[in-house]
């Protein structure tokens, strides 16, 4: 099972993402955006990692979404192959119309707005550990194929534009009804609070990750590759382990899910 980690100019998480994918049993390579796009078809799945593609010029993900490699990825998505966009990768998938995947550019990831007790208390870039609650049924989505409903996953995030917004008043109802909301920000008890610090960026209904209607394309703002090994966890996390450098962390479940999705699809 070979995956491509797609690298644009300004991507900066490609190496650790590939390491995390390999730790889950996938093989793969970094695929630079200017390689012949048709070479993508030889891979079984794709990850668009985090970073600042094209320095976030114009707006995050907008320029990368127009690259020929994204047209090729759209074709691979239509074939049912899995694609996971992490952070900037999520922003690119939204700008490309692959997520939520309802026919056009259906949403935007706007600047973070942290609201507490009805007041804006902070804006912009934020870096923190967060807890995600898995919302979709098992096997609904390629990147959470192995997760149960309500399962909690800890991982860090670091972004300035992760606040899901839309002008479509029916969008969230459609995403909820179709189980396209894959992850929500919650507290460590799994409770969803619409305000900061639980809703860490002001995103609609605490959305942290969504998939397309078919479930093979997942976008998420937090970074699973940064909690794929137990040694990466916070010092206070009971799961932290520094003795065994290969011991898994919670983020590895995303990559293991992708691997299992590819196996089942075959």
């Amino acid at each position: 099972m070979k995956i491509a980690v797609v690298q644009f100019p300004g991507t900066n998480c490609e190496h650790e993402t590939l390491v995390a994918a390999r730790s889950a049993g996938l093989s793969g390579e970094i695929f630079r955006w200017n390689r012949p796009a048709e070479e993508l078809s030889s891979f079984d799945g794709y990850i668009i990692p985090g970073g600042f593609s094209y320095q976030d010029r114009l707006r995050a993900g907008a320029i990368a979404s127009k690259e020929p490699v994204m047209d090729a990825l759209r074709e691979e998505a239509e074939e049912g192959k899995p694609i996971i966009g992490i952070c900037n990768g999520f922003q690119i998938l939204v700008e490309a119309g692959l997520l939520p995947g309802l026919g056009g550019v259906d949403a935007a990831l706007a600047s973070n707005v942290m609201v507490s007790k009805g007041e804006i208390v902070r804006r912009g870039f934020y870096c923190a550990w967060t807890t995600l609650r898995h919302e979709a049924p098992p096997r609904r989505c390629s990147g959470s194929f192995l997760l149960e409903v309500g399962e909690l996953v800890r991982m860090p995030l670091a972004h300035a534009e992760g606040n899901l917004v839309t002008v479509d008043p029916d969008l969230m109802a459609r995403l909820n009804e179709d189980h396209q909301v894959v992850f929500r920000y919650c507290n460590e008890a799994g409770e969803v609070d619409p305000e900061y610090p639980v809703n860490i960026n002001g995103s609609l209904e605490n959305v942290a990750g969504i998939c397309n209607p078919e479930g093979n394309v997942l976008g998420m703002m937090p970074h699973p590759e940064r909690s794929s090994f137990a040694w990466q966890l916070q010092p206070t996390d009971p799961g932290k382990s520094v003795g065994d450098m290969e011991a898994p962390g919670p983020g590895r479940r995303i990559f293991e899910s992708m691997k299992r999705y590819i196996e089942v699809r075959r």
Partner: peptide, 9 residues
């Protein structure tokens, strides 16, 4: 086609 995302701009 490029300059705006209509959901915020």
């Amino acid at each position: 086609g490029l300059l705006i995302n209509p959901h915020k701009d």
